[in-house]
Write a protein that binds this DNA or RNA. Structure first.
Lengths: 202, 202
DNA sequence: GACAAGAGTCAACACGGTGTCGAAAAAAGT
DNA sequence: ACTTTTTTCGACACCGTGTTGACTCTTGTC
């Protein structure tokens, strides 16, 4: 009776069903690749019929894009913090950044993994390329600053190629480490390699 | 007419058709992922009907396994040369090994790339895991030898985690470098990172 | 050079998953 | 209450896969 009428800003039924589909998808992606997930399965997980799925998404691929869009804000915010505060001790700063990358993967790994699958739609792969590109660009800037102050030796290798390989190693190391290495060892190994690659003179 | 009769070891017609299928597959894999290659397409490429394909292979996945088996000998031979001759100058030796990896990729890249796709059959992924495992093991041994002689500083990071990350970086760097970096720069960057990661003291 | 045996071929079929359509039910405004 | 818009779903068309069984072509043998 006291039901607050006020703003009817409740998400409509459709919004909730769409969200249920996305959550089901994310749950299933943690277990098997996108190509092995049937529309039926998705629909059942959200309590609707198979053909109703198409009311919400054009295809399985389109749903992946929606999943990426949903994660995007969070992801981009975190990427902005990547390597920024360089005032502090260098080694600890590297650890923090790599831990941030691990965290990003913990939160969105299954979606990101699906998006980098070779037969994901081009837009999804572009999204991943952009994300990686931001990381590389930030790393490149950091290297150039360190080199300018003499803290890091000059190239070759160029800041760009160094950044590309280190970011690639980090993404690969994190996403393909299936419990083989403990998280602490993983972070430690990666940050050691980063540190040596950036600051060691041969 | 001097056609040496001797051994009638000519590959039977079927053998030739099977080979034609494998070659068609390899050619197509260079262009698009396995999942996007239809049986029809493969069959047409070998000049047979779609249903004849199944005389040769149980499925597209089974054909991928045959493709791997075909590359396997060559691949394993090359892996055995990986990091072996450690007598010479360290830096040049690293370059040689990485160039070898680039060469392996040039020769078999499209098949290896398909085999590491998440929805490739488990056996294909196992093959890739084995191959990577061999590379990691060889690297690990090399690190341990260098550490034993004092040429490289002791861990942490452990030889194993270091080897895992470096090999991973190399595979990733090579397989995802789509002409972005020239081959010389790629090899140079990778070998610099290897060298610093292995021999630099922090 | 005829003839079996087996190697290779393919049209026709069954099946399973995708995506579309239009009619009907449910929800939301007025 | 009744109109509009949102949501649902059964029925259908379509496409690619994999199977079957009858056929033809090779290949070796006497």
């Amino acid at each position: 009776m006291v039901s607050a009428p006020a703003r009817r800003r409740g998400p409509s039924k459709g919004d909730r069903k769409q969200e249920a589909l996305l959550e089901t998808a994310e749950r299933l992606l943690a277990v098997k690749p996108l190509a092995e997930i049937g529309i039926e399965e998705l629909a059942k997980g959200a309590g609707i019929s198979r053909s109703s799925f198409y009311f919400y998404f054009e295809s399985r691929q389109a749903m992946l894009l929606a999943l990426l869009a949903r994660a995007s804000d969070n992801l981009i915010t975190q990427v902005e913090g990547w390597l920024e505060p360089e005032s502090e001790d260098t080694r600890a700063s590297l650890c923090r950044s790599i831990e941030l990358a691990v965290k990003m993967w913990d939160e969105h790994g299954s979606v990101l993994f699906a998006a980098q699958n070779p037969d994901a739609p081009a837009e999804a792969r572009q999204f991943m390329a952009d994300l990686t590109g931001r990381l590389v660009a930030a790393t490149e800037d950091m290297i150039n600053r360190k080199r300018a102050t003499g803290a890091a030796p000059p190239g070759p290798p160029s800041a760009h190629s160094l950044a590309t390989m280190l970011v690639g190693m980090t993404e690969h190391g994190i996403s393909h480490n299936n419990g083989a290495l403990g998280q602490a060892e993983l972070v430690d190994t990666l940050s050691t390699i980063w540190h040596r690659a950036l600051f060691a003179t041969d």
